[in-house]
Design a protein around this nucleic acid. Structure first.
Lengths: 202, 202
DNA sequence: GAATCGCTTGATTGATCGCTCAATCAAGCG
DNA sequence: CGCTTGATTGAGCGATCAATCAAGCGATTC
């Protein structure tokens, strides 16, 4: 079986959905960029939605290799890993003049009435991202307050990242992103201050 | 001149863009809901994009009356006003089963290559929202640290709101929104704590 | 070497898209 | 009353959309 065609379709669709969104990407767009003919595409996928599903599955399965590993190479400190991940998105924004954002976030807001399977995959992608942050927070140990809800803070980090990207894209200004990350950094600093005070002798 | 037709088109488009997004809303959708015929629509608007522009102008001009006034009635404390505004979005989420979000945020991520005029209007809507928060922060006076960058915190508040809505919609779970707002509240509390310490006698 | 299989080809379908336009209508004015 | 103006009507345009399908290809199997 020639799995190359299927994979080429998925990777090309991934690119196009990121560049133009799902709805604005036509099947013809995918076909012309892959040099695949419509019959082949519909041999592997029942329809356009199923291509999107495959793309979201690729994101889900590739988070470690494509997202975390590159961002974390050479960064050991768990707290710095969190901001290194944010910096990865920053780089993407800079290299695209603040036009491309988070592919999952884009799709999450674009698809208004998502197929349950699609909504589930969007949620899984968010949840995996959040879990990666949560693991960093766990690894940060007692540098953070003992009573801190780490899952919440991980969720919050995703929230800030998505919101910051949205504004950077809208303003076409990376400094908007930087300012938001700086406030998140200040939040972390305050938490770490509090943890230090808790550990200090009374 | 019968301005009623034009306004009816704008308000209906506003509804539909909120419900289904811009791209998924067809001219035919607008026509059937307004009971207006295509010729009339194109008498007032050169094209579909111009309807979107009119909608964004309506949001821009209506922020005080539609958004701030209802959320702030009976709320005087400037800090509480900020969270009252967030609570307004929360109510919208709850009453739509977490399917509708922030109309501006949706459009900001949906339109991948926006007309400059459209991007500008999206930015203006964000900026006005941020300024409203900033005015609250200014009114909070010395309850916040003296060296606090209030504009930044206002920006950050919008960031959290948009990110929180995105996740609530994706998870179809209002508690996700609540948890994020709770972390933002904790951030405000920490800032106000610090301001109190600064004022305390050394 | 005939049959079978996964896969490819690319013309074609019918629906829907945004949009056009000639015709019609009602109101206002001199 | 004749004429102008602005709004409305609705059939219909060409383009594009996702999706279909019969025919053909090359490798494998019997």
């Amino acid at each position: 079986m020639n799995a190359g065609t299927r994979q080429r379709i998925v990777m090309t669709a991934l690119e196009l959905f990121w560049e133009k969104g799902f709805q604005s990407t036509s099947i013809a767009d995918i076909l012309s960029r892959t040099q695949v003919h419509s019959g082949s595409l519909y041999h592997f996928f029942p329809g356009k939605q199923d291509v999107l599903i495959a793309v979201l599955e690729a994101y889900r399965d590739g988070i470690e290799e494509w997202l975390l590993a590159p961002a974390w190479s050479g960064v050991d400190d768990p707290v710095e890993r969190i901001f290194a991940l944010l910096n990865g998105y920053r780089t993407q924004l800079v290299t695209t003049d603040c036009t491309y954002g988070c592919p999952i976030g884009n799709l999450a807001l674009e698809i208004s009435e998502p197929d349950p399977k699609i909504r589930e995959l969007l949620a899984v992608n968010f949840a995996n991202w959040t879990s990666a942050i949560e693991r960093c927070l766990d690894a940060a140990g007692d540098r953070l307050p003992a009573d801190l809800d780490r899952r919440r803070l991980a969720e919050f980090t995703l929230t800030v990242m998505e919101g910051a990207i949205m504004q950077a894209r809208t303003y076409r200004d990376i400094e908007s992103f930087d300012r938001n990350v700086a406030v998140l950094r200040a939040h972390f600093d305050m938490l770490m201050d509090r943890a230090r005070q808790e550990k200090a002798p009374a």
